[in-house]
Amino acid sequence: MQYFVQQLINGLTLGSIYGLIAIGYTMVYGIIGMINFAHGDIFMVGAFTALIVFLILGALFYSVPVVIALLIMMIVAMLLTSLYNWTIEKVAYRPLRGSFRLAPLITAIGMSIALSNFVQVTQGPRNKPIPPLVSKVYTVEGVSVSLKQIIIVLVTVVLLALFWYLVNKTSLGRAQRACEQDRKMAALLGVDVDRTISITFIMGAALAAVAGTLFLMYYGVVVFSDGFVPGVKAFTAAVLGGIGSLPGAVLGGLLIGFIESMWSAYFSIDYKDVAAFSILAIVLIFLPSGILGRPEVEKV
């Protein structure tokens, strides 16, 4: 039982990170109907920015309280990563918005390749380890919970609450939902569609940057190719939850996190990704539009 609870906590931590990335996929998909393949690499850029900021802080000050350091890392990563995603949208996706469906997918894949190789060229191909930022571990009835895990879950919950408020209660969120339903009609009613889409990309990138910072804090290492696997997992999570649905993305992220940690604990760690992908395929056979997704209406 203790072992099971332990795995549940590990899964929750992992799932939080996946959920944060998955929201970026699902939002972009919801609003312009494209798979933003570069999103995983945006997450990696976020983690790398956090790493560089951490090193700058270390070089400038003798010692910085961990909370403040983390906060600064997160904020700078959010700002910079948003700038990346904003620029990419402007340069690579916007000119192709009226084009056929696969064109932006190809530029997105191209951007993903370019981003990870850009980081490889400028920062070197090696693993970048940092000393542990937070190392406290609490043990409650035989179940150990590290402070890192608590921070990850807390930050995720706070951000999700903030995000939920933004999407559901503000005019910006209303504009986003309007664009999602019908872009042309939204434009006719005075919604600045281009701006709304830009903001969607910025929001997605900011969440991915937070995920990146948390990832760096949790694992203590980052490398230029780190964008791919979490990116694909998060995308899987978004599809599993029903692409286009925000609660679905979080649910999918948590599910993938649980599946992974449970499978590694009870079966074999080598096949944890195989398990996650297989469950995706099985779920989609029975629920072809994901768990919370709306079934696609076919118009003739």
Partner: peptide, 19 residues
């Protein structure tokens, strides 16, 4: 720079000739 240029070329060719 091979893959960096490859990725950028994918983007540029697509922007230039979306079809």
């Amino acid at each position: 720079y091979r893959m960096l240029l490859f990725g950028m070329a994918m983007v540029i060719v697509m922007l230039w000739k979306p079809r």
